[in-house]
Design a protein around this nucleic acid. Sequence first.
DNA 1: ATACCTTACGTAATACGTAATAATC
DNA 2: GATTATTACGTATTACGTAAGGTAT
Lengths: 123, 123
Amino acid sequence: MTWTQLAVFSKVVEMGSFTRAAEVLHMSQSAVSHAIAGLETEFGVPLLIRDRKHGIVVSDFGRRVLDPMRVILNRVAQIEQEAAAAQGLEAGTIRVGSFPSTFARLLPKIVSVFEKQLAPIRR
Amino acid sequence: MTWTQLAVFSKVVEMGSFTRAAEVLHMSQSAVSHAIAGLETEFGVPLLIRDRKHGIVVSDFGRRVLDPMRVILNRVAQIEQEAAAAQGLEAGTIRVGSFPSTFARLLPKIVSVFEKQLAPIRR
DNA sequence: ATACCTTACGTAATACGTAATAATC
DNA sequence: GATTATTACGTATTACGTAAGGTAT
């Protein structure tokens, strides 16, 4: 069970089609098929009933697990946001402006101190 | 980000030690170290502060993501339970009793018919 | 024929283990 | 020296793509 697989399954259900899910997710239809097949063999239960006439129908089991899967996807997104935010705190650019003459001697000292304070954060 | 990684991180926090988490999870300490390192490089933010004296301390970021991670793990467990339950419906053992003499000829036929009906379910 | 899913096969990524290394008590 | 985390390296798994194959309209 992979996030990609969960995302794929969720999107396939949403779109009602492997091909269109593949387009939206920017992957090959083969990858979509693999993803669903992978989940199904892992669970030993079909998730989707392939009906050529009416497109894709979600199996009983599929309906059961769809909700927890979407919860998972939401949480994953949340974690990634947290990560991005945390990174932002550390990886932001710092801009310093000054009068050329005044800070010519002061700046190096300030930068030096600042870098020392930064050292432990960098690790 | 893998479930294993999430489970490892969660357990490391719980145990306060890589080694003990490894024991509980039946994996090598190296695998535990890999798992945490993998998460940290993926996020670009440290999850744990390694303090040899006081064991493991969870970073600020780690504390933030711990909760959603545990939610994910719970949902995963839930999905697996659903799968097991759904499988149980299909994978149960069937026991057939009979008088030796009476069913000697009948049984093969019955089994044959039964297997034919089973065919579509097995796929 | 066309639209859609599946299968075969190759490849690149990676999760994990063993074993060696480093560091702290 | 004992305990614990990291690193190096090898391997087996696997996610994914390309391309070919079924199947139904």
